[in-house]
Amino acid sequence: MKIAVMQFPGTNCEYECLVSAREVGMAGELFRWNRPAAEMSAFDGFIVPGGWSYADRIRAGAIASKEPVMDALREEAAKGKPIIGICNGFQILVESGLLPGTSGNGKVEMALAQNVMISNKKIVRRGYYVDWVTIRHDASPRRCSGSFDINKGELLQIPIAHGEGNLVTMEKGLIQKLNDEGQVVFRYCDSSGRTIPEFPVNVNGSTENIAGICNPEGNVLGMMPHPERAFFNWQLPPHDPRKHQMGAVGPGRKIFESMKRYIEARA
């Protein structure tokens, strides 16, 4: 089982993603954007990490989405291989039309716009934001490659770090369709699992608190939070009791374990 962690100019946390994939038992290597795209077919799954690909020029993910390697990634996605886009990786998958992928023709169906933090119906903050958030898994188990082993309603504490995570769309009925088809995988919520639409629970103003979605087939997942930054318990914040517990693991580990289980189940 071999995973490719995509690397564009400006990618970050690719090494953390690689370590996470290896820790759950998947072999992996970095795959630079300018490597022959045909070599991608040798991998069983792909992670598109976060960062600032091409320094977010024009808008986050726009330039990377035009790279030839993305055409190859579309082909691999069509084969049902798992792809997880994290933060900027999610933005790239949206800009390339791989997510939400309901049109089936690569059309860009949504945008991850600049964060707008709203409280009491007033804008209290805008722009880049870093924090630990709680996300609720809203899809059924086995619906999506990156949450294959996560129960519906399960809560995960994972950090975010982004300026453009506000999911918006002009496609009429798209959000309803995503809800109906179980493509909304994660939503921002409070520690009790309530999806309060205002800051600080909804950290970026995203429509219906959406933090992650998958394509109709479920093999492609995009999520704004960074699971690789919550993989080991020592990465957790000081107030989390699991931080110093022997044998405890970070909640982000479940994303990578799910990917592995998904690949095993497909085999």
Binding site: I58, R59, A62, K66, E95, V108, E109, M110, A111, A113, V168, T169, M170, E171
Partner: peptide, 9 residues
């Protein structure tokens, strides 16, 4: 093709 994302621009 490149300069806008129609869902925000």
């Amino acid at each position: 093709g490149l300069l806008i994302n129609p869902h925000k621009d």
